[in-house]
Write a protein that binds this DNA or RNA. Structure first.
Length: 163
DNA sequence: GCCAACGTTGGC
DNA sequence: GCCAACGTTGGC
């Protein structure tokens, strides 16, 4: 059974619009360098899981759209690349430290659902987003997911057909 | 720009 | 293994 997740990104660096514009609307979600987030990526996330894309550190932080996990977890190649900002000299191919998955864009909300609004929803009070800051890959419960889909229902447009 | 929360580092 | 210092995250 599919699980639900929230991935944070700073839209100035990489946004839901960037994701939608990728070839096949698919991208490697790499560069995660936090152990708790790593553990989710390595141990808990599976192909077919659903992802909320969250825009942080921007004018209107909040949920910007949805994506789907389209690969199994695998070692993040950037940890082995000395020219990458995500290079980790203490990692090795034999004992990789960091993991990633590929995700595919599913939907963009016409307007971000602001975190300030999410805070006002009683049923979302237990979200990891509020219980624990600073975690860029975090689980979302099925109940939370359904509420968030409801909130986004009238603020969503379908994925543009890829050429 | 402020600052609270929290992860990481490094001396001991 | 403790914990102070430091760095980063991220909303406001």
């Amino acid at each position: 059974m599919a699980s639900y997740w929230l991935f944070k990104t700073e839209p100035a660096e990489y946004s839901i619009t960037d994701l939608a514009g990728e070839p096949g609307a698919t991208v490697r979600w790499d560069g995660i360098r936090n152990y708790q987030a790593r553990n989710h990526l390595r141990d808990d996330i599976a192909k077919g899981d659903q992802v909320l894309i969250y825009h942080s550190s921007c004018k209107v932080p909040g949920i910007a759209g949805t994506a789907k996990v389209v690969s199994a977890p695998y070692p993040d190649p950037s940890q082995f690349d000395p020219n990458s900002p995500y290079y980790d000299a203490k990692s090795s191919v034999g004992a990789p430290r960091w993991f990633c998955v590929d995700i595919c864009h599913q939907s963009s909300f016409d307007n971000v659902i602001p975190v300030s609004r999410l805070r006002t929803v009683q049923a979302l009070a237990e979200m990891v987003l509020f219980r624990q800051g600073r975690l860029s890959v975090q689980p979302v419960s099925e109940g939370e997911w359904q509420i968030l889909v409801e909130l986004g229902l009238h603020k969503r447009h379908p994925v543009p057909v890829q050429e």
